[in-house]
Design a binder for these strands. Structure first.
Lengths: 219, 219
DNA sequence: TTACGGTTGGCAGCTTGCTGCCAGCCGATG
DNA sequence: CATCGGCTGGCAGCAAGCTGCCAACCGTAA
């Protein structure tokens, strides 16, 4: 494929047939951005890819996988991500949508997938440095603002109630004012603040504010 | 230019000659991501572009311009950004590097610039939806995590001293412990914390923590 | 030398935050 | 019906945070 060329294929079969050779060797870095882990139409393909990648990671390959919170929606996906992360891949979660899967291999080959159904969607493959470079930069920028999977705490207790408390805290209100606004007693408000502090694993309110922001819990 | 094609040109003259027609009409949306505003080799070109874009914004065009903090490095750039923002363009600053300028027009045409010197660099232009879509999504993701120009406070008073205080606060230490560690009295530590709170325009420590994080002041 | 401005540190008084305690209320269960 | 668990709200006691006050110290300038 000449350097300035782009090929577009439909479906995974055609992708493998026309561009599979480009993905044969991953030597240095594998970058992937997607909504969730259901990339390929067959879940077994995902397992096969992961099992091939793990030895490579041990040999020095850098794998960066960027997903949206949808990738943590069910236990299967989460389990898979924790598994690849434990194997050494860097996994981050970003809050913005990633409707098009983007894969960049060794900054040499780039695969862009349409937003369609995994089994029937259009793939664009290119080796053009003029295209890969800028996309890689944008991937990098998104990566930098994403939260490492390990740092991302699951906070199921972010009820509407807790969210209102975060709002009040973020507005700098005293407990008394905030409690009155919420229509609860000061003791109850403080009890809930203490719950929130515990959930944020924070010893001070400054630290809690910092963490709430880091975790994207601010309203 | 066929849909799946990409053209690569070197220099602005060749860009205008071979692809200038693609940029003739901007009807709906103009998205741009770059390190700073020194996009073109001639500053007068920047002024001319801005002066053409302002009436369009008033007619409903959405202009989104995404830069790194380098775009605020000098008064001239800052002044320009404040000007276009005042004219209705949305300007955001993102903390990650954007070494390749990326321009997407009406989601129809995309221009990717190499990282070279403005007067002598390579441009890649494409109208391929398979390419524009994913890049647009990554632009969007980066945009979402960037800070609106208006919200970005300049905080020159982040001395090494204040940074150490932020560290102590972020670690959840009590004032007494932090003061002792810094080798100052509790009164002095608290005096400095109060200075920091004032600088962060915060009424509570939670709010201060939140803002410090938002402003990227955390160590 | 003295005078001045800025900073520090100790102290005191106050407010805000933290949490235990206990009574009361409510819903669910046997 | 009684019992239980969970939650609420008032109160008290304490810790942490906030700030004014004043003396002491330091560097600088006249």
């Amino acid at each position: 494929m000449p350097n300035d060329q782009v090929i577009t294929v439909r479906g995974e079969k055609e992708l493998a047939a026309r561009a599979g050779h480009l993905f044969a060797g991953v030597n240095e870095e594998f970058c992937c951005a997607a909504t969730d882990v259901n990339t390929w139409s067959q879940p077994t393909a995902r397992v096969a890819i992961a099992s091939r990648m793990m030895p490579a990671i041990r040999s020095g390959l850098v794998a960066r996988k960027l997903y949206t919170p949808a990738a943590l929606a069910d236990d299967e996906q989460r389990g898979h991500l924790l598994q690849v992360a434990a194997a050494g891949a860097k996994v981050r979660i970003c809050d913005a949508g990633l409707p098009h899967e983007t894969i960049i291999i060794d900054r040499r080959v780039m695969l862009l997938a349409g937003p369609g159904v995994p089994g029937d969607r259009e793939f664009t493959v290119t080796t053009s440095p003029g295209l890969i470079g800028p996309v890689y930069a944008l991937f990098d920028a998104t990566w930098e603002s994403a939260v490492p999977l390990a740092d991302r705490r699951e906070l199921p207790m972010i009820t509407p109630d807790a969210r209102e408390i975060l709002r009040a805290l973020g507005a700098g209100l005293t407990d008394e004012v905030a409690a009155r606004r919420m229509g609860v007693s000061l003791r109850t408000y403080r009890r809930r603040v203490a719950d929130l502090m515990r959930a944020l694993d924070s010893d001070s309110r400054f630290q809690a504010g910092l963490r709430a922001g880091e975790l994207g819990l601010t309203p």
